[in-house]
Design a protein around this nucleic acid. Structure first.
Lengths: 329, 329
DNA sequence: CGGGGTTACTTACACGTGAAAGGTACGTCC
DNA sequence: GGACGTACCTTTCACGTGTAAGTAACCCCG
């Protein structure tokens, strides 16, 4: 505990060479010629001393840290988010860097975190305010924003329509969130849903936004379902912003004494961890978090001038059929 | 983009003072006397240049970074984990440091991540191998391990027994996981469950371990339930390692055509996000992630010699009654 | 008037690393 | 035999910060 970490100076002393030689050996520089004998001696000394280079001085010297920051606010309950994190962690590690994820609490924390962390690039899958973007710009840290908002982010919602139409539904409801930080994902999905309905020549769908992420209550959704039911031509299927909303919807329908999918079909989005466990099991849309992660990292690398800018991300999505939408109406 | 970050030298030049003066002003050192006029000038210059101190050089100079690393492997689906993360993020931020969470993939990645990150302390809520502990020791980074394994980690399981007994159940089943990395939590809970049954003079409970985290299948649990049912004196209530297992159990019972809680009571643990949404809604045990986070941070601070070692953590847990266990049998 | 203390700074060094520039011994070529 | 290249290593600097030590001006008091 009292003895400090060993440094390259210690290695140099032990191997009987200069510190520069140590640096050349450990970084395997091929424009420097080092005799095999000293190379071995240096490596042996490094092993013996359990040498791990000091990150701070390396970052100071090189101008850039080897850290990639993933900004992740809210949405603690989606499997997709952790899958993106895991895949990104793997990809970033391959470049010798490390991915760390930071769970943002307030907007103020970002300043001090950036000062403490000093990542070479920041990636965000969630909402980032303009002032925060400005902050990142002043400290010269490139920001990669999730392209979920790009062309293609309406695809999952369109798939929901497509599937419900194929199952014979015409009168559709769409249950989304009014949470401000989720509008980035919610808005294009809602628009895609409405547009797809129009393209299929369906009557205009009913759209309802219930308050935020975890704040959705079964009661409020029950009320909404009842309202839709009491219309002259009631909706026969409800598609949801995500699986959590769908689970609430399922619970609400059950509490109303309706049978799913007979009285009402329910469709989710995300193929979250609990989707196969609801009864009836949730028919949903699976996205491709790994593909997204790859695209985010490719974009980040292009910002680091290590790679060309990748093609725009095209969302990959597919239906996962379970039991909450019947085979045919 | 081309212009580099502004440094304290820039501020010194702009304010017409030496760099040392800048440092004294910005760090508000009270053992140095600085005239109000220059103080203002320096602060104005810093503001004007959007100065943010360089983390690398600060860490290099001070010997310690301002980063706290939370090692988080597996268990992507528990709300408790993210709640611990969020509370820790808040607490750590109050000390001027930043918490970053690292999702460990393989055991090898730890070396390079430590080299890149160089946290002043590491906190782990999950399983850490001995070799990894050794590694942390060689780089002199203190490790704080979650005390869930300490006295008190059997409490949630004992609470499950207590509650089921109060509801008139005698013949109990316990459904746990065989996932190796979760045994740290699983073993004390199972032992607590069995011990509590003995203390209540119940017949010895049936214990089954199904394969790990997300690998639990409804089929395997169905089989287990059927086996328990076919015994001469079938179990009337099943307590589970966590809410996910409980959700699987609920689905299995439903698929078998049994009514919950009439035919079989099911009890979870964690009060996870989907617990209120299952039908019947899940009766479960809520832990205290915020309390755990506070304890972890207090321990970490004591390792940083800023605070005395806290008292051992006593798990806080309470029953959350919903509908998967009936009022009385 | 001069010694001692205070105020308000500046100069100089250290942290650990990467790497350019410099140096030395040895062989080679004309 | 001296110019030149090459293999191998060392000396030296720079990165941006915190801070101990030094300094110059000023004031107070006997």
């Amino acid at each position: 505990m009292a003895t400090p970490r060993s440094t390259s100076t210690d290695i140099a002393r032990l191997a009987g060479v200069s510190r520069a030689t140590v640096s050349y050996v450990l970084n395997a520089r091929k424009d420097q010629s080092i005799s095999e004998a000293t190379r071995e001696r240096v490596l042996a000394a490094a092993r013996q001393l359990n040498y791990v280079p000091n990150a701070a001085s390396r970052a100071l010297r090189g101008g850039l840290s080897h850290l990639v920051m993933l900004i992740n606010s809210g949405v603690p309950w989606s499997t997709n988010v952790t899958e993106v994190e895991d895949e990104l962690t793997r990809l970033v590690a391959q470049s010798g860097r490390s991915l760390v994820v930071w769970r943002r609490q307030g907007p103020d924390d970002l300043v001090s975190t950036l000062a403490n962390l000093e990542p070479c690039v920041a990636i965000s899958t969630s909402f980032i305010g303009d002032d925060e973007k400005a902050l990142l710009a002043t400290v010269k840290i490139p920001l990669v924003e999730s392209d979920l908002v790009a062309p293609g982010s309406d695809i999952p919602a369109r798939l929901q329509v497509e599937h419900l139409v194929a199952r014979g539904h015409e009168r559709l409801g769409y249950l989304t969130t009014s949470e401000p930080t989720l509008q980035r994902f919610a808005t294009p999905r809602t628009e895609g849903f409405v547009a797809a309905c129009a393209e299929f020549k369906l009557p205009e769908p009913r759209v309802a936004a219930v308050p935020g992420g975890l704040g959705v209550t079964v009661e409020s959704v029950k009320e909404q379902l009842r309202a839709w039911q009491s219309e002259p031509r009631p909706v026969t299927a409800v598609a949801c912003f995500n699986d959590f909303h769908a689970a609430v919807c399922l619970a609400a329908a059950t509490d109303l004494g309706w049978w799913v999918p007979e009285d009402l079909a329910v469709m989710g989005l995300d193929d979250d961890i609990f989707a196969p466990l609801t009864r009836p099991a949730l028919t949903t849309v699976k996205l491709d978090p790994h593909g997204l992660a790859r695209h985010l990292w490719a974009t980040a690398q292009s910002r680091l001038h290590e790679a060309p800018e990748p093609h725009p991300y095209v969302m990959d999505a597919r239906i996962v059929e379970r039991a909450s939408v019947s085979e045919t109406v």
